[in-house]
Design a protein around this nucleic acid. Structure first.
Lengths: 218, 218
DNA sequence: TAACCTGTCGTACTAAGTACGGCGGGACTG
DNA sequence: CAGTCCCGCCGTACTTAGTACGACAGGTTA
């Protein structure tokens, strides 16, 4: 087997692949080394430690998110960015938990933030409203991804099963509203939690547009 | 020393205290045992394993969130709940990362969800709109807490320092909009990222009220 | 050819989760 | 009141994971 020489790039790509396959707990130096066809200590010639790997793969995830076009129509750009971000975080759910603990953003992360801010500014948002809008949009995207990742199911089929279990388990009336939601909404054929995303996103974008045109001031 | 007998309750409270003090990585069976004045293996007579501890302390966090009053004015109740939830997650930032991986909700978590759903339903929301509103509100709260936890600073003072560092480091123009935001907004005296929370929250609540009164339909 | 550098690896130490079995003191029985 | 028993605590030790340290090989340069 011809062995491509190890590089920082290959280490990070490999780490991402291992995390995608086995989650964060499945990502160990040893499992990563195996993935790369190498012995554990070889990895350390390309990254300082595991933390650097974690920082690196978070940045790889940001690299997968479509950059908004500064100067484009802000609403469409923000919508596209949000959908892309949610998709990336859904592909790499392990990244969500890392967002909390990683405090040194990589170049892709910084570029992403910069393009987003720039798009809002070019769209007519004041500096202050830009800050508000950005915090709001990112909170929604991250939070939605977090909820999606935490759900004990992953597709429309599992959802119905889970909802059925809830209905049965709590039929006694301990959690009536939870049961109602499960029985009358979630178990309906075709329900997909992921569809909730666009409702909230459009609601937020509509409301931001309102704040923008009315020249909202603090 | 009179030693209160160990109980599951004391184990979980102790685990929460250790996590508050040293983060998730600081919470080990050994550190927990020391906190409790006990040897490591004693802990295992009250919980099956560490995962059960993690599930347990997440539920303790939910227990700290004020329950909305079913039948109360939905907007005020949702607002109070959101502020309370954000405060709880800010006190226990380690809980945010756990939300993603813990899939077995405890009683406090279930009660919390049920009361929230009930408040919306009693406030006139259809089952479907309730689902949308709930996903939206929770996403925002969790996401905001996630962002807050990920910030490399924790108070208004640190923020200005950090913003100053950004301005200096990227003065070359690589990330112009990031620099602009830092220089013209974040570094202003009195800025506190936490204040962004209420802007987004009220925007969302306003927009939900609009969807409610116009009898929004899918 | 000899010195050297770069990337790989073997070994081993430390920290952490936890299985297994011992043990002591209070409770319960006769 | 004594014997029995069980519950909760602990000592020991095995496993997995991060990573420090130094050896070694193969190509490169002087």
């Amino acid at each position: 087997m011809v062995r491509t020489p190890l590089t920082r790039e290959r280490v990070l790509r490999g780490a991402m692949a291992v995390a995608d396959a086995g989650g964060l707990t499945g990502l160990t130096i040893r499992s990563l080394a195996q993935e790369l066809g190498v012995k554990p200590m070889s990895v350390y010639h390309h990254v300082a430690n595991k933390d650097e790997i974690l920082d690196g793969i978070v940045d790889l995830v940001f690299d997968e998110i479509e950059l908004p076009v500064v100067g484009g129509e802000w609403r469409a750009e923000m919508r596209r960015r949000a959908l892309s971000a949610r998709a990336a975080l859904a592909r790499h759910t392990w990244a969500i938990g890392l967002l909390e603990s990683r405090t040194s953003p990589g170049p892709a992360t910084l570029a992403h933030h910069d393009a987003t801010l720039g798009t809002l500014r070019a769209g007519g948002f004041s500096v202050e409203l830009t800050a508000h809008a950005y915090a709001l949009l990112d909170s929604y995207v991250y939070g939605f991804a977090l909820q999606e990742a935490g759900l004990p199911f992953s597709g429309p089929d599992d959802v119905a099963d889970m909802a059925g279990a809830i209905v049965e388990q709590f039929a006694t009336g301990q959690y009536p509203h939870l049961v109602e939601l499960a029985a009358e909404h979630v178990m309906k054929p075709g329900y997909d939690f992921g569809d909730e995303f666009e409702f909230g996103l459009d609601l937020i974008l509509d409301a931001l547009a309102g704040r923008l045109t009315t020249g909202w001031a603090p």
